[in-house]
C-alpha cells in the first residue's frame, strides 16, 4: 500500500494531538528540558523570546539552525520554530532540519509585506497567527494547518489575546447564524474564501485547531483563554521571563488542563514566584505592535 506524506490530514493531525496542551518558547536545550519535564506538549525553538526581541529591536530572523538542532536533541516532544512572514527559504531550511511545525510569525520582522508563504508547497505543517476570522481563513487558504489567535507578544498582557479570541468567536457565531444565501456576501466582507466560510458554518468552529498566543503570563491567564474557547496555549516569554520558570511552567500546564476548576488553578498558582513584568498597551507605539504585521 502507498504511504502518503504531507497530506493536509497529516499536517492538521499533529495540531489535533496538541489540543488541551501548552507549547512553550525556549532558547536553549536546558529550557527545552524544563518545558518537557513540566508537561509541555511541544516547544518553540527560538534565538530570543519575544520580550527580548522587543528590547533588542532591529530585524528579528529565523533562529540559528544549531539552536534548533540542539533543542531537537534535548527533547522527545515536537519541536516548532519560527520563520519571517513570507520568507519561504527560511521555511525550506527549517523543513530540511525536520522541525515538526513551522510558525510563520509576526514576532519576527516580516520578509514580504504582501504575500505569505504558499504553505501548500511544503510537507511540513505551518501555524499562523490571526486577529479575526477573515485573517484566520486567509491563512488556512494559504495552507496553514493550525491557527493561533494573536495577542501582543512579549508584553505579559493578555488583553489583546482576549480581544482577538472574542473577535474570532463572535464572527464564527455570526457566520453560523447567517443564511446560506447570504454567505457569499459575508465571505467578501471577511475577505475569505467562500468554501472555508461554508465549512465554518457547518462546523460551528474553525476547520483547524486554534491555540491562543501572545501575552499569557500566569496560570489564570491560560485558563481564561481556555474558557474563552482556545484549543490550547502558546506561552512565549511568560515562562522563562518569570521569576521561577520551573514552577510557572508546571502551573500553566496544570491550569490549562483543569481550566474549569478554580480550586486547582488556585492550588497551582500558589507560591510560584512573580510573573514576567508586563507592559501596558497604551505605552506601545504603532511601530512596536507586532500583531499588525501580515494581516
Amino acid at each position: 500500500m502507498q504511504e502518503q506524506r504531507g497530506t493536509y490530514n497529516v499536517k492538521s493531525g499533529l495540531a489535533e494531538m496538541l489540543k488541551g496542551g501548552v507549547i512553550m518558547d525556549v532558547t536553549t536545550p536546558e529550557q527545552a528540558a524544563i518545558a518537557e519535564k513540566a508537561g509541555a506538549v511541544a516547544v518553540m525553538a527560538l534565538e530570543r523570546v519575544p520580550a527580548d526581541i522587543r528590547k533588542a529591536g532591529g530585524v528579528a530572523r529565523m533562529a540559528d539552525p544549531r539552536i534548533v538542532k540542539s533543542i531537537q536533541e534535548a527533547v522527545s516532544i515536537p519541536v516548532m520554530a519560527k520563520v519571517r512572514i513570507g520568507h519561504f527559504v527560511e521555511a525550506r531550511v527549517l523543513e530540511a532540519l525536520e522541525v515538526d511545525y513551522i510558525d510563520e510569525s509576526e514576532v519576527l520582522t516580516p520578509a514580504d509585506d504582501q504575500y505569505h508563504i504558499d504553505k501548500w508547497r511544503f510537507e511540513v505543517p505551518f501555524v499562523c497567527g490571526a486577529r479575526d476570522l477573515g485573517e484566520a481563513l486567509r491563512r488556512i487558504a494559504e495552507g496553514a494547518a493550525m491557527i493561533r489567535t494573536k495577542g501582543e507578544p512579549g508584553t505579559g498582557n493578555v488583553v489583546e489575546a482576549v480581544r482577538h479570541l472574542r473577535a474570532v468567536n463572535s464572527q464564527i457565531r455570526h457566520v453560523v447564524a447567517t443564511p446560506e444565501s447570504e454567505l457569499a456576501d459575508l465571505a467578501k466582507e471577511l475577505r475569505a474564501p467562500l468554501d472555508l466560510v461554508k465549512q465554518v458554518k457547518e462546523l460551528g468552529r474553525l476547520p483547524v485547531v486554534n491555540f491562543s498566543a501572545g501575552g499569557v503570563a500566569t496560570p489564570a491567564d491560560a485558563a481564561l483563554m481556555m474558557q474563552l474557547g482556545a484549543d490550547g496555549i502558546f506561552v512565549g516569554s511568560g515562562v522563562f521571563k518569570s521569576q521561577n520558570p520551573e514552577k510557572t511552567a508546571r502551573a500553566v500546564v496544570r491550569a490549562t488542563l483543569h481550566y474549569n476548576d478554580p480550586k486547582v488553578i488556585a492550588e497551582v498558582s500558589e507560591d510560584i514566584g512573580e510573573a514576567m513584568p508586563g507592559l501596558e498597551m497604551a505605552t506601545l507605539e504603532a511601530k512596536d505592535r507586532m500583531q499588525d504585521r501580515g494581516i
Binding site: 500500500m1 502507498q2 504511504e3 502518503q4 506524506r5 504531507g6 497530506t7 490530514n9 497529516v10 493531525g13 499533529l14 515536537p78 523543513e95 525536520e98 522541525v99 515538526d100 511545525y101 510537507e123 511540513v124 505543517p125
Partner: peptide, 11 residues
C-alpha cells in the same frame, strides 16, 4: 521519525 515522516495509508 519526526512529523515530516508522518503519513496516511489505506490499511
Amino acid at each position: 521519525g519526526r512529523q515530516i515522516a508522518s503519513f496516511e495509508v489505506p490499511l
